[in-house]
Simulated assay, not measured.
Amino acid sequence: MRATVRKEVVEVALRLFVEQGFDRTTVDQIAGEVGLSRASLFRYFGTKEDMVLQGLEESGRQIAEEFAARPEDERPWESLRRAFDVLTRSNEAAPERALSYLRMLQETPSLRARHFEKQLRWQEMLVPEIARRLDVSLDRPEEIRPNALAASALACLDAAATGWVACEGTVPLAVLLDRAMGTLTE
């Protein structure tokens, strides 16, 4: 039941955010459309931003799982690129929705900041497997390569997403991601 209500709130909130803009949509509007009080809505979500970003934690887990499932002999950078296919596939399945969502993230400072926090969590999930593949110990503070690889890959993902929104999806996100990540290997 709780998951069903959360899903409905997210769907209504995203629709209103796209129609009216994030800042112009009120929590009371969202609560009213789903038949909840404002207080009840905040039992499901701590903030308005959480309504938009709640799926990012699951996306991070999927990326980390995909990365861990890549072939052992594959270079970590290539494995990271392929792990991001989880996102490119979902964006290709509903490009207009994905573009609207990313545009909202990029144009709303509070969402952009929270999105960055979520991506830092993705980095934390990826680093142990990167370290294992590089055969390095995270117990050594001077061993920064796993963090550098994860952070660089996520920066490339952000650059590709920004480009994808800017070109209105005319170039596939996967192509832009290949270009961004390929730039660091040239």
Results as ranks from 00 to 15, higher is better:
residue 3 A to N: 12
residue 3 A to P: 00
residue 12 V to K: 09
residue 12 V to E: 10
residue 14 L to T: 02
residue 15 R to H: 09
residue 16 L to Q: 05
residue 17 F to P: 00
residue 18 V to E: 09
residue 19 E to R: 09
residue 24 R to F: 06
residue 27 V to C: 07
residue 27 V to H: 04
residue 29 Q to I: 05
residue 30 I to P: 01
residue 31 A to C: 09
residue 33 E to Q: 14
residue 36 L to I: 11
residue 37 S to W: 09
residue 37 S to P: 03
residue 39 A to Q: 13
residue 39 A to G: 11
residue 41 L to W: 01
residue 41 L to P: 00
residue 41 L to K: 02
residue 43 R to H: 14
residue 43 R to K: 13
residue 46 G to L: 11
residue 46 G to S: 14
residue 49 E to M: 03
residue 49 E to T: 11
residue 50 D to M: 07
residue 53 L to Q: 05
residue 53 L to E: 04
residue 53 L to F: 04
residue 54 Q to L: 13
residue 56 L to Y: 14
residue 56 L to P: 00
residue 57 E to G: 15
residue 58 E to M: 09
residue 58 E to K: 13
residue 59 S to R: 12
residue 62 Q to F: 03
residue 69 A to P: 00
residue 71 P to C: 10
residue 72 E to I: 13
residue 72 E to Q: 15
residue 77 W to S: 07
residue 77 W to Q: 11
residue 79 S to H: 04
residue 79 S to N: 09
residue 85 D to N: 10
residue 85 D to M: 05
residue 87 L to Q: 15
residue 88 T to H: 02
residue 88 T to Q: 04
residue 89 R to T: 14
residue 89 R to H: 11
residue 90 S to E: 14
residue 91 N to R: 08
residue 92 E to F: 01
residue 92 E to I: 01
residue 95 P to A: 07
residue 96 E to H: 04
residue 97 R to T: 14
residue 98 A to D: 03
residue 99 L to H: 10
residue 101 Y to G: 03
residue 102 L to Q: 11
residue 103 R to T: 06
residue 104 M to K: 07
residue 106 Q to V: 02
residue 112 R to T: 12
residue 112 R to D: 14
residue 112 R to I: 02
residue 113 A to R: 13
residue 116 F to V: 12
residue 118 K to M: 12
residue 119 Q to K: 13
residue 119 Q to W: 08
residue 121 R to D: 15
residue 122 W to K: 05
residue 124 E to W: 07
residue 124 E to Y: 09
residue 126 L to S: 05
residue 126 L to Q: 06
residue 126 L to T: 08
residue 129 E to N: 06
residue 134 L to K: 10
residue 135 D to A: 15
residue 139 D to Y: 09
residue 142 E to S: 15
residue 142 E to G: 13
residue 144 I to C: 09
residue 148 A to L: 15
residue 148 A to I: 13
residue 148 A to S: 12
residue 150 A to M: 12
residue 150 A to K: 07
residue 151 A to D: 08
residue 153 A to M: 03
residue 155 A to N: 12
residue 156 C to F: 05
residue 157 L to N: 03
residue 158 D to F: 09
residue 158 D to P: 00
residue 160 A to S: 03
residue 161 A to G: 05
residue 162 T to N: 05
residue 163 G to P: 02
residue 164 W to T: 04
residue 167 C to P: 00
residue 168 E to S: 14
residue 168 E to A: 09
residue 169 G to I: 01
residue 171 V to I: 13
residue 172 P to W: 00
residue 173 L to K: 00
residue 174 A to F: 00
residue 178 D to I: 00
residue 179 R to A: 13
residue 184 L to D: 04
residue 186 E to F: 11
